[in-house]
Computed example of a mutant assay.
Amino acid sequence: MYLHLGQNEIVSDHRVIGIFDLDKCTYGKRTRDYLAAAEQEGVVLDVSGDIPKSFVVCDHPYHRQIVYLSQLNPSTLKNRAESTNLEL
Rank of each mutant, 00 (worst) to 15 (best):
59 D>S: 14
20 F>M: 10
85 N>W: 12
65 Q>T: 13
59 D>C: 09
78 K>W: 04
63 H>G: 00
84 T>P: 00
13 D>H: 07
19 I>H: 03
34 Y>R: 05
47 V>Q: 10
50 D>M: 06
36 A>I: 02
80 R>M: 12
51 I>Q: 11
56 V>K: 08
44 V>A: 03
8 N>H: 10
36 A>N: 09
51 I>V: 14
5 L>A: 12
70 S>H: 06
76 T>F: 02
75 S>A: 11
24 K>H: 10
40 Q>Y: 00
22 L>F: 06
80 R>Y: 09
69 L>Q: 00
30 R>W: 03
35 L>D: 02
19 I>E: 01
83 S>M: 15
14 H>E: 09
16 V>H: 05
20 F>A: 03
81 A>T: 10
49 G>C: 07
27 Y>D: 11
44 V>E: 03
57 V>C: 01
18 G>T: 11
35 L>H: 04
9 E>I: 13
39 E>C: 03
18 G>L: 06
26 T>C: 11
74 P>N: 05
12 S>D: 14
32 R>I: 02
8 N>V: 07
9 E>C: 11
11 V>C: 04
25 C>G: 01
72 L>E: 05
30 R>P: 00
41 E>R: 07
80 R>D: 06
1 M>K: 08
19 I>W: 03
75 S>D: 10
83 S>R: 15
14 H>N: 10
51 I>T: 15
53 K>I: 03
87 E>D: 07
29 K>Y: 02
37 A>R: 10
84 T>S: 14
87 E>C: 08
6 G>H: 05
23 D>H: 08
45 L>G: 00
30 R>A: 12
83 S>F: 08
69 L>Y: 08
76 T>K: 06
44 V>P: 03
38 A>D: 06
63 H>N: 10
71 Q>E: 07
45 L>E: 14
18 G>I: 04
25 C>M: 12
79 N>V: 01
3 L>M: 08
29 K>E: 10
49 G>M: 04
7 Q>E: 14
47 V>K: 14
60 H>Q: 11
12 S>F: 10
23 D>N: 09
61 P>T: 12
45 L>R: 07
45 L>I: 14
4 H>I: 00
27 Y>W: 02
83 S>Q: 14
21 D>G: 06
35 L>K: 08
53 K>R: 15
9 E>N: 11
14 H>S: 13
65 Q>M: 04
63 H>L: 04
19 I>Y: 02
19 I>C: 01
15 R>Y: 04
19 I>P: 01
75 S>Y: 11
65 Q>S: 07
36 A>F: 01
48 S>E: 05
81 A>S: 09
85 N>K: 13
57 V>N: 04
17 I>T: 08
49 G>P: 00
56 V>P: 02
64 R>M: 03
65 Q>E: 15
46 D>A: 09
26 T>I: 13
8 N>K: 15
52 P>H: 09
43 V>Q: 03
29 K>F: 04
8 N>E: 15
54 S>A: 11
73 N>G: 01
10 I>H: 03
17 I>Y: 01
69 L>T: 02
67 V>F: 07
27 Y>E: 09
36 A>R: 13
16 V>R: 02
62 Y>A: 14
32 R>H: 03
47 V>H: 08
64 R>G: 02
3 L>Y: 01
24 K>A: 09
20 F>I: 09
58 C>Q: 05
42 G>D: 08
51 I>R: 15
4 H>R: 15
64 R>S: 04
